[in-house]
């Protein structure tokens, strides 16, 4: 095939392109993924029953805030890395600030809590450890499916961000069900499992995102 012929083919009848398509598609994927995660939790395990309680509500809001902070931050970075060369212009490390925030809060609460109180901080950790990665599978697939058609050039980092967004969406869903209300629990088990999703994304990225 002659290169001139290819150029002629490509430049015949070109359609105009929406310059915000990448942002729109990532936003749509986040919307669909979050709906899937929330839907799965509501259908299979049901929301926590004690939302009328002020303390329970506070912790629910706190978990949601943590999850949403992760979703928003990670999708902003994902939009950048989904474009060719995005990794050159972006410092991905800032995507970790919600983890730092929750770890700080947890440390403060541990310092303030009486020592005999520590053993009550977290009992459902196994459920959390299994639920968040499991619920994250569908959101992760949705995000990967969308990003595959963009043009990331650092597949490991992009995969990690896709995993991070998916972990955040999953945590937002799981928070509706989870009744373990302590800051160290959230920091360790929410933070830990979301980080696990990120790691899985980094490992799978080069395979799933190749173009």
């Amino acid at each position: 095939m002659k290169t001139d012929d290819l150029i002629r083919i490509l430049s015949t009848n070109v359609e105009p392109i929406d310059r915000r398509q990448v942002e729109r598609e990532v936003a749509a994927a986040v919307g669909i993924g979050t709906a899937a995660a929330v839907g799965a939790v509501l259908i299979f395990s049901g929301p926590r029953a004690d939302v009328s309680d002020a303390r329970a509500l506070t912790f629910l809001m706190l978990k949601l805030a943590f999850a949403i902070a992760i979703i928003v931050t990670a999708s902003i970075y994902l939009v950048r890395l989904a474009r060719p060369g995005g990794e050159m212009r972006t410092k991905i490390t800032w995507a970790g600030w919600p983890f730092l925030g929750i770890a700080l809060l947890a440390a403060i609460s541990l310092v303030l809590a009486p020592l005999w109180h520590w053993h009550t901080m977290g009992t459902d950790w196994l459920e959390c450890l299994l639920s968040i990665p499991l619920i994250a599978i569908v959101p992760f697939a949705v995000v990967i499916w969308v990003v595959r058609r963009m043009a990331p050039t650092d597949l490991t980092r992009t995969g990690a961000l896709a995993g991070l967004v998916a972990g955040g969406m999953s945590a937002a869903g799981y928070a509706l069900h989870c009744t373990d209300d302590s800051l160290p629990f959230i920091a360790l088990w929410y933070g830990g499992t979301i980080a696990l999703c990120m790691l899985a994304g980094a490992v799978l990225g080069p395979r799933l995102l190749r173009w």
């Binding site: 392109i17 989904a82 474009r83 060719p84 060369g85 963009m150 043009a151 050039t153």
Partner: peptide, 22 residues
């Protein structure tokens, strides 16, 4: 096929170059 990933707020050459390098 991936021209929608070009952000007009950024320079063109690095975008093209990143694709070529990849």
């Amino acid at each position: 096929t991936r021209r929608h990933t070009y952000n007009p707020d950024e320079p063109f050459t690095p975008w093209m170059h990143a694709i070529a390098r990849y």
